[in-house]
Write a protein that binds this DNA or RNA. Structure first.
Lengths: 263, 263
DNA sequence: AAGTGGTCTAGACCACCTC
DNA sequence: AGGTGGTCTAGACCACTTG
């Protein structure tokens, strides 16, 4: 029993009948559990394993790939946490129904969002100052009032049409400077910061709605009293230190905000 | 050997000096890795282990609690994934800076949100119908047009003041019925569904802004043309089947939407 | 070189599900 | 009773960081 391919695994180029092993490169610096994980993932993404279908049991995977059960369980465990598989004690491991959107609510920059929705992101620098934080900014960033922060105001464009006003207050290390030329060359403030070694990884955001005042209406090219969508947020570095407080004021007719949430 | 407390753990009541073991109850049905996890967590939450501080290395934890390294690694691994610890190869394992808000963007019901912000949630049933889905609803729920769905329209209250209009389209099993009395008794539609065995666990939500039309203005008690915040979403069951399409139209002066996002 | 986390093995027994 | 995933052990060697 236990015959040829067909299993979880890739089709043999030369139809060799032996089962087991294969595909595992033990000389490479890639961990075995990771190779196995990629292998199973390829089966799922490639449609060879479909939703609801059981994958081979752990002990069988051990035999096939000549690895220990710990290794198999590490691969399967990660795939389960990533939402690809579903383990049920006593029954087996099954391919999960695909998630609506892989990953969680993603932290994305305005430029990334615009690009992702198929438009050309643009930016026009309105102001760049180094100034003492007022109380509102200080409290958002967890600073003393009066600590110097960078203030960047930009008009955000999609396909050269204004869609949002972006205000950013940044608390940067004292050896990091922002100059207009950089901000005009690089559309994304975040990639600029990344290049300076500041990685933004987490944010607390609030969305609200307001009506346009005179200046906002003019900048965005909409009538006064038009509805505007406002996204305010505090963005944290990989050290979980608050780095940026921003406020994006966007045309409600051109902008909405989507998130994927879990129970 | 193997004496009492003091370890990573709690203060000794009677000062006995030996470290190691203890606290692990091997007779109980609680897994050892889980006991260890809770134990370390208690140290962190209790402030005995502070941010940035190293916890004992894995091999030391093995000795102290008389468990294998696999067990220690499972405990530490889960704590790392949950954001409490930070492992660095070659250096050690450190207590992570606390997350801004534990967990991800949480799926919460309107009632839960209102209650969490310190107000008394209320609800007034405006409509309850069983009707064929129109094209918009059908496509949101992934159904054929004309499939029968439940329609629930409610005015949402906070401290008896109207703050939102809630429209829900639900695709329920054919043996599940909604009756006005239930909806009037139970403020939360979701807890009603939960009681009927339908668990909502995941959602794709979009936030936009509009201005109030005549009916909306009257229901919400605001002037026409006031800005309103709209949250639209498709909610999925634990089987990842779309169950509800909803639309919450809320007063922008009383309602905002917060999410915690990750890179 | 010593210490840390990362990967891996070859077993073992338990808890749960199905027949 | 037999199969599945869940937990656990006592080792081993590797990769990375630090003195």
């Amino acid at each position: 029993m236990t015959k040829s391919e067909n299993m979880i695994g890739i089709q043999p180029v030369k139809p060799s009948d032996s089962r087991q092993d294969m595909n595992m490169d033990r000389t490479l610096r890639v961990p075995l559990y990771y190779q196995l994980k990629e292998l199973i993932l390829a089966q799922i993404e490639g449609g060879h394993l479909r939703y609801g279908q059981a994958i081979p049991c752990e002990r069988e995977l051990c035999e096939r790939y000549r690895v220990s059960r710990t290794t198999v369980r590490q691969a399967i465990g990660e795939l389960e946490r990533e939402g690809y598989l579903n383990r049920q004690q006593g029954k087996g491991t099954f391919v999960a129904r695909p998630r609506i959107r892989r990953g969680m609510a993603q932290l994305t920059s305005f430029s990334e969002e615009v690009a992702a929705s198929g438009h050309e992101p643009g930016s026009q620098l309105l102001a760049l100052r180094h100034e003492p934080a007022d109380s509102r900014v200080a409290s958002a960033l967890g600073l003393e009032e009066g600590v110097w922060v960078w203030f960047v105001e930009r008009l955000r464009l999609a396909d050269d049409e204004p869609i949002g006003i972006n205000l950013s207050y940044l608390r940067l290390p004292s050896d990091v400077f922002l100059v207009p030329a950089e901000l005009e060359a690089e559309v994304s403030l975040w990639s600029l910061l990344e290049a300076k070694g500041i990685r933004l990884v987490e944010a607390e955001e609030t969305i609200l709605a307001i009506v346009a005042d005179a200046r906002q209406a003019e900048l965005l090219g909409v009538p006064e009293q038009s509805p505007l969508l406002v996204k305010e947020g505090v963005v944290y570095s990989d050290e979980r230190v608050p780095v940026e407080f921003h406020r994006v004021i966007a045309r409600a007719d051109r902008y909405s905000y989507s998130v994927h949430v879990f129970r």
